[in-house]
Nucleic acid binder design. Structure first.
Length: 120
RNA sequence: GGAGUCAGCUAGGCAAUCGCUUCUUUUGGUGAAGAGGAAAGUCCGGGCUCCAUAGGGUUGAGUGCCAGGUAACUCCUGGGGGGCGCGAGCCUACGGAAAGUGCAACAGAAAAUAUACCGCCUAUCGAAGGUAAGGGUGAAAUGGUGCGGUAAGAGCGCACCGCGCGAUCGGUAACGAUUGUGGCAUUGUAAACCCCACUCGGAGCAAGACCAAAUAGAAAUCCGUUUUCUGCGACCCGUGGAAGGAUUUGGGUAGGUCGCUAAAGGUGUUUGGUGACAGACAUCAUAGAUGAAUGAUUGUCCUCGACAGAACCCGGCUUAUCGGCUGACUCCCUCU
């Protein structure tokens, strides 16, 4: 199994990078619980940004848990060669979802397929 | 055995794989450490930092039985008064109501000014007089109980209790005990205004300090202080700054480094103290992120895991909380 690191190269760090994704995204994935925005980038790796507001997820414990689960899926599942920037926004419905883990797993798996088809 | 009071502890464990943050080694890696009792609410207090060491008056805010502890407090400890409970215990903003003002719904005759609905007594039998015993209303009704007294009554008189004032004794004090004396006068409300006593400068780690880069919004020093604006919570006084001129240095930006964790620190023993706590000695090294680290998956065991995530740091308060454990004490029942 290849190493699957998650360091600062894999994160969106500045507001400029975030803005680029918000403005340059095409066909976003809109779900009840999450919103995914994606944009191809110019570097080799994927980069992840999470925007999670207190308004949508009031409890800090749950906020942290959702962030970790998103990060973990990004790290373990997503094809590292895709070269996309991705921003995930949890929505209020994520509060009530019991099994976010399997849900996110499926989403990221389907993302892999989508992107591969797009490249081919 | 049942019911209850108080104090304290704990906050799933183990293993495997893949990851994150910091540190150490060293640059492949290896190793070590890595959220809470409330990290929360931001309600108080303090450290620390800057503003200009921050003065006076008015205003504003806070505290409010006494003594002590503390860096400090609205916290804690001990004590006193009052209330609740059979009890262990619990609760208590607990200074002032003859300085003044306000308020007291409904009911009730009357709610603070005095007065009289039913009643009682007198009677010249009237739309009179005397009463406040009793009844009734209310959260609250002009001291309470008893005896005397009277036409009926009334602190009108007396005794005891209560209340005010004084003295003595005990106590650091709050206060308590004893005793003398006064006379029954104006109810309650001050988490209503208010009065009295005491305390209080402001803003906050996005505080603040330094470094780098880049091209004209800034900064520093000096001169000046009529006017205008502005800071010191507000206003007045007082005082500082800016707008102007001269000289010098050179910036934006979610950039980087520091602040940033060793601190009124934890644990143990011991000394002093009723106790909060303080002193001495020994010992421990224990998160430090910054688009923000503790996770995910799998297996397994059990009692099947609540509330909940550090963001400068401490002391408290308040609120949330599954299950379990420990100790001390009280009451009731049964047996001996």
């Amino acid at each position: 199994m290849a190493r699957q690191p998650f360091s600062k190269e894999q994160k969106l760090l500045s507001s400029a990078q975030f803005d680029a994704v918000f403005k340059g995204n095409r066909n976003p994935v809109k779900l009840k619980e999450f919103l995914f925005l994606m944009k191809p980038n110019s570097i080799d790796t994927n980069r992840l940004g999470i925007v999670i507001s207190k308004k949508n997820i009031p409890l800090s414990v749950r906020r942290n848990r959702i962030k970790r689960q998103i990060r973990e899926c990004f790290r373990t599942i997503l094809d590292p060669d895709l070269g996309i920037d991705i921003v995930v926004l949890p929505r209020p419905a994520a509060n009530f979802a019991k099994d976010n883990w399997t849900f996110l797993e499926n989403v990221f798996l389907s993302l892999n397929k989508l992107k591969k088809e797009a490249k081919n």
